[in-house]
């Protein structure tokens, strides 16, 4: 067969695959937005639900989503950044770091329903936290830990070795060096990881529904049960409560994810630009 012809055929397929990917994303986003945005208005965003969400707004779900995301990050960020600092600055590659990396990788591969099962049996039942923001936040914290560790590690490794030498050379202890040189310069990368983790918390359902519950009230403490937007969307859609409200919730959800990704990307590009200027 003609070599040029087969190349053109293959390249044609590759181009179609790439275009298909873009088109699929466009379809998903457009579909939800077109169907949902007409129902999104101020009352929807700032009002409480009526009749299980058949009428009214989604304020409790919005608040619940952000509270859960924030709580899980408060728990996970110190652990994740701490682990990354330890793995990069306090050890040399060794069997210990191999195990830790394997643990992190494996944790990243654990499906969210397993986190849901674990959170349910451990945080909700065993620790008796009940369906609550805290149980959900702890569960999501474990879930996003691998992402945080990996992004923070990459950001830390990108800090020039020369900075470390200068800092040590001027009499810095290890922690002083980390605090004054490594962390400030790795910050954009670390923040990117934090934002992406927040995105996972926002989009998660399986792990949240069995740990934070489905209560449609504005959470008043970390022990209140809550319902996130993703869970609300799921319940509206699957239980056929209200399709328009489901679309509208989906639109808000997608808009949130879009904003999160755009912000993360801006930070990444800015970080790269800064690295190039040096």
């Amino acid at each position: 067969m003609n070599r040029q012809l087969s190349q053109r055929f293959a390249f044609g397929l590759l181009w179609s695959a790439a275009s298909a990917t873009i088109i699929i994303l466009a379809i998903i986003v457009m579909f939800i937005m077109v169907q949902g945005l007409p129902y999104v208005n101020l009352a929807f965003l700032t009002g409480g639900p009526i009749a299980q969400g058949r009428e009214g707004g989604i304020l409790p779900a919005i608040l619940g989503t952000f509270a859960l995301g924030a709580l899980s990050l408060i728990i996970a960020v110190p652990l994740g950044v701490g682990a990354a600092v330890f793995l990069t600055e306090y050890t040399r590659p060794s069997p210990l770091t191999t195990i830790m990396r394997f643990g992190t990788d494996s944790l990243a591969g654990v499906p969210s329903i397993i986190f849901g099962l674990f959170g349910f049996i451990f945080f909700v039942t065993r620790l008796n936290l009940g369906w609550s923001l805290l149980a959900g936040g702890l569960t999501i914290a474990l879930m996003v830990l691998p992402t945080l560790i990996r992004t923070a590690e990459e950001a830390i490794r990108a800090v020039p070795v020369a900075y470390r030498e200068v800092s040590y050379g001027l009499g810095a202890s290890r922690w002083q060096m980390v605090r004054t040189v490594v962390l400030p310069n790795a910050l954009p990368g670390i923040v990117t990881g934090i934002i992406l983790s927040f995105g996972r918390a926002v989009g998660e359902t399986a792990a949240v529904i069995f740990t934070a519950g489905t209560a449609l009230n504005i959470p008043t403490s970390v022990l209140s049960p809550t319902r996130t937007m993703a869970v609300h969307f799921y319940i509206l859609a699957v239980e056929g409560i209200s399709l328009p409200k489901a679309y509208a919730t989906g639109a808000v959800l997608i808009a949130t994810i879009l904003v999160i990704n755009v912000v993360a990307n801006l930070l990444i590009t800015r970080g790269v630009a800064r690295a190039v200027r040096r």
Partner: peptide
């Protein structure tokens, strides 16, 4: 290291 200071071959300004 405070008593014995070091200047490296490549100039390094810390980003501050």
């Amino acid at each position: 290291r405070r008593r014995v200071g070091m200047v490296f071959a490549l100039p390094v300004a810390l980003p501050m």
